[in-house]
Nucleic acid binder design. Structure first.
Length: 433
RNA sequence: GACCCCAUCGUCUAGCCUGGUUCAGGACAUCGCCCUUUCACGGCGACGGCGCCGGUUCAAAUCCGGCUGGGGUCGCCA
């Protein structure tokens, strides 16, 4: 006796972009399928012809792949209307369904309906709000609950992994399985993702599509990792885990029953972790692509320079989008002093900074070690603390109070830019007097 | 309202199935200290939780019941 092959499915509706919740449902399906050497079927539920759009479909497929998942088969419900009609007729013929007002209604009686749920155990419904359900609408298209049952049965899905919001759909679907004589599948209703406030995610959250997170500079590894942690735990106090590792140790039993609130803070932290794990070269490539996508990469900037920026910012970047502003002084000629920075500039140091500028100008090989030596020597000669030179210099060069180590920053920017910017600060002070 | 699901730090969770080894472990966030030219990283530390009431038991976060609270569903949407 051979074990039955696991067959699961993810069934998105192309009436919107792939959102966080859908992505996680897909993820659990994928993890379970891969862990059990089963098959993942992608079923596009495009029965609502008016609202389904190619644009959404493309985005959904693209996002699934971008996240690092794949599928074994794909079906489109819009191509299967004949099949649904055939089974509706069967139900009518056997007296379980009837036509009314141009639609087909499935009628049912029951004592109780039992759901075999891998995550929640047995769920028993003793009452349902209705005793009939539309299965074919008056425009001849099937309803969700009907096409879903027919397809899950025909595609031999033996474990249905979906959101908890579908629990209440399950009894009527099970009744249809029974009426049609189909073998009933197992279920796994995964908890919902809630907004930070505890409510439904999609309703109060703006940024819910995977595409949007991608545009904001989140890495696919981070999103997948975070989504896995929402409702599942790899154990051993692990927080950072890759898809390929997770698919080895995933179990449905370890999936929680409780809804989980989405935390941008934690996602940001995970994204930072993945960025820090990148090699400088990889991070540099990421930056290049991101800047290009946002038309923020001047042509004069070369790869070598970007590698240096990557190493400067790897430890201090949470999202690639943060770089859009942080990198401005490095990519553009103009430096704008922030309001916060201007306060430090109240104290004019024309003499000291001029001296520093002249000292720096004399350095032959502009490297951070010699730059630091020059700074220390200048401070000593001027009989002031190093800080007194460091803070205004940083502002002169980048416009802000914060940033990477100053000496590395100076080396990266190069002598020409540095001298020019120090002169600009000196001018700024002169004009204030 | 009816039906269904759920309940450990502010948030995500480990522990719960197989009660004692847990005056509950980790992570994010917050706060403090260290490192340091700033920010960040890193290190160290603090804060903070088993919703409530009963029951079972020598013993309950762990088992049972009720209550309360939160969530979901009640569309010819999916």
């Amino acid at each position: 006796m051979s074990e039955e092959t696991l067959r699961v499915r993810f069934a998105p509706s192309p009436t919107g972009y792939l959102h966080i919740g859908g992505a996680r449902t897909c993820l659990f399906n994928w993890l379970y399928a891969r862990k059990c050497a089963g098959e993942l079927i992608l079923r596009i539920e495009d029965t609502d012809l008016a609202r389904s759009k190619k644009e959404f479909l493309d985005e959904i497929l693209e996002s699934i792949e971008w996240l690092g998942m794949d599928w074994d088969q794909i079906y489109y419900q819009s191509e299967r209307f004949d099949i649904y009609h055939e089974y509706a007729k069967k139900l009518i013929d056997q007296g379980s369904a009837y036509k009314k007002e141009g639609a087909v209604f499935f009628k049912y009686n029951f004592d109780q309906v039992k759901i075999d749920d891998l995550i929640r155990g047995e769920i028993i419904f003793k009452e349902l709000p209705k005793n009939e359900e539309v299965i074919i609408k008056s425009d001849n298209s099937p309803t969700y609950n009907f096409s879903c049952v027919i397809d899950d049965a025909l595609m031999e899905i033996n474990c249905i992994i979906r959101g908890e919001d579908h629990i209440s759909n399950t009894p009527k679907q099970l009744l249809m399985y029974k009426a049609l004589g189909f073998k009933t599948p197992q279920f796994a209703h995964v908890p919902l993702i809630l907004s930070g406030q505890g409510g439904r995610l999609s309703k109060r959250f703006g940024a819910t599509s995977i595409r949007q997170y991608r545009q904001e500079g989140y890495l696919s590894e981070s999103i997948v990792n975070y989504l896995m942690l929402l409702g599942w735990s790899p154990g051993e106090n692990r927080e950072i885990i890759s898809l390929s590792e997770a698919k080895e140790i995933f179990t449905m039993k370890a999936v929680n029953k409780t809804g989980a609130a989405f935390s941008l803070d934690k996602l940001n932290w995970i994204n930072g972790e993945y960025i820090r794990q990148k090699t400088t070269e990889d991070f540099s490539d990421l930056i290049i692509n991101y800047l290009k996508e946002n038309n923020a990469l001047p042509e004069s900037i070369d790869k070598n320079y970007l590698n240096k920026l990557a190493s400067l910012f790897k430890e201090r970047t949470l999202r690639l989008s943060d770089l859009l502003t942080a990198l401005k002084p490095y990519l553009n000629d103009e430096v704008i002093y922030s309001d916060e920075a201007k306060k430090i500039l109240d104290n004019s140091l024309i003499k000291e900074v001029s001296f520093l500028r002249d000292s720096l100008d004399k350095i032959g090989d502009f490297n951070k070690e010699d730059i630091e030596k020059t700074f220390r020597k200048a401070a000593e000669d001027l009989n002031i603390k190093l800080k007194i030179l460091v803070h205004p210099s940083r502002i002169a060069l980048t416009g802000t109070k914060h940033g990477p180590g100053l000496f590395e920053t100076i080396e990266t920017l190069g002598k020409e830019r540095v001298i020019k910017r120090l002169n600009k600060l000196i001018d700024y002070w002169s004009q204030k007097q």
